[in-house]
């Protein structure tokens, strides 16, 4: 009996140790990302307005700033957020409210297909559909590819937030004798407005962090933000191109951009968590 009890305790300890070790490993990785970004990026970020507004310095010269890429990021993410919400909310509504119908099943598969596609494939498809006919990469093409990548997240979150509305409220809403679209868009969605807002923020987080879809579509205009129909750049692209160069000033600039991107992502994530935490349903 005693032997079995010791064995059980040993197994118990081993499981505890393994779970604690994996938790620590994750914590270590997360801290390493944040600390590296802080140590390398903070001195650059603390340059303030010149970092946020100026273009990058010449190779091997001044550090400069990420102004045009930051503008490109804000514009592309804003357009991608609006576009993914405009398509993703109705798609999520259909996935939830028409579930079981042929159209909803096809749409569900399409959404899954996009979600499962490597994002670089999305970039390449938008390149052939938009960049080639326009004869130029642009902030608009980048925004379109980002919105496609963000779309499944928005649609899935909207579907979940509608599905989370308890049947008692759903029945009450449908018992008022309104047309179905009015019941869904004017009663059920406002009932879980925070869930839908969370969906939109999740989409913008996804758009902010992606690099692969904008590789072929945004262009590489790091010196000037020319406008939405002209070649552009984003923070993630700047990191991708500048971090691998032999120039010390460009590598430092890339670290500054890393920290800025991490901070923007954390801001969106904390907003999303606060909203999701307050979702009533």
């Amino acid at each position: 009996m005693r032997g079995r009890s010791v064995k059980r305790r040993l197994v118990d300890y081993a499981v505890h140790l393994t779970t604690a070790a994996s938790a620590l490993a994750i914590l270590g990785a997360a801290s390493h990302i944040l600390l590296s970004a802080l140590v390398e990026g903070l001195p650059v970020l603390l340059r303030g307005a010149s970092f946020l507004l100026n273009p990058p310095g010449p190779p091997g010269g001044e550090v400069g700033g990420v102004g045009p890429s930051l503008a490109g990021t804000l514009v592309t993410v804003a357009i991608a957020t609006i576009a993914s919400a405009a398509l993703g909310i109705p798609a999520g509504v259909m996935l939830s409210e028409a579930r079981g119908s042929l159209l909803a099943r096809v749409a569900e598969r399409a959404v899954e297909l996009i979600a499962e596609s490597p994002s670089i494939v999305v970039g390449l498809v938008v390149f052939t559909l938009l960049v080639v006919p326009m004869r130029t990469p642009s902030a608009l093409a980048a925004a379109v590819s980002l919105s496609v990548v963000a779309l499944p997240y928005v649609a899935a979150q909207v579907r979940e937030s509608l599905a989370a509305i308890p049947l008692v409220y759903r029945e009450a809403a449908f018992s008022l004798g309104l047309q179905k679209w009015k019941t869904v868009f004017l009663l059920l969605i406002p009932m879980n407005a925070r869930g839908v807002a969370t969906a939109i923020l999740l989409g913008s987080m996804r758009a902010l962090g992606e690099t692969a879809p904008v590789l072929f579509t945004a262009g590489a205009a790091f010196q000037v933000f020319y406008g939405i129909d002209k070649p552009s750049s984003t923070l993630s692209l700047l990191i991708f191109f500048f971090a691998g160069t032999p120039y010390e000033n460009w590598r430092r600039l890339a670290w500054g951009a890393v920290l800025l991107l991490v901070l923007l992502s954390m801001l969106l994530a904390s907003l999303t968590r606060r909203l999701a935490g307050r979702v009533r349903m």
Partner: peptide, 27 residues
């Protein structure tokens, strides 16, 4: 046709006034 349910289920995101007004307003 109107309906009243076993469990009272006023809309949780609306005020007392809006719970009553929502049907006629949206219609």
């Amino acid at each position: 046709v109107g309906m009243v349910f076993q469990t009272p289920n006023p809309f949780p995101h609306l005020s007392i006034y809006d719970n009553v007004a929502i049907g006629p307003r949206l219609r």
